[in-house]
Design a protein around this nucleic acid. Structure first.
Lengths: 82, 82
DNA sequence: ACAATATGTAAAAAATTATATACATGAAGT
DNA sequence: ACTTCATGTATATAATTTTTTACATATTGT
């Protein structure tokens, strides 16, 4: 499952949010700093739960934090039977 | 990490979408039916990537598929020194 | 009655995400 | 120069998600 479809603005949001550090964000949502680093750098797709918690800290909607680029999707397998 | 914060309308959306089956949805987004069953039943929090793909199939926004209940959040750990 | 389809459940394995630990660098302040 | 802090990177491990396989039940159509 490709993982470069998702981008995020966590870094910007952290700075808008009074220059919140990675550690402070991690503490707020209850994960480790490593998790924040990895997500912020787009190393993998976080779980929906963590994504929601991040958005909640910044008081924005999920799509203001993350975006998914569907143009990078692979071709759908066409097997509509009817 | 608790996992009962997230609810979803996948089942309803499948039926609105011409009574799409679990298998058809799974095929569209490129996962197995088991994954759809588990997510639909709220067994765990899917990855953000799969969440986005599901929303895309139904042509709706993510928050029309999933919702996160922040009222169930645990108390934040405040001012951890380090 | 029979076959085909949709869904539910389960359990082990594979794959991915998250943690823990450690060390490096650069910036800021004293 | 020294210390502190924020970030980057790496690697091993733990935990969770996803797959694979299999079987059960109910429903629908022939």
């Amino acid at each position: 499952m490709s993982k470069d479809h998702i981008s995020n603005n966590i870094r910007k949001l952290r700075f808008f949010k009074d220059e919140m550090t990675q550690q402070a964000l991690a503490d707020e949502i209850g994960v480790t700093r490593q998790t924040i680093v990895a997500i912020e750098k787009g190393k993998y797709s976080p779980t929906l739960e963590i994504a929601y918690r991040i958005a909640h800290v910044f008081e924005v909607e999920l799509n203001e934090v993350f975006s998914y680029d569907h143009s990078k999707d692979k071709y759908k397998k066409r097997n509509q039977k009817k």
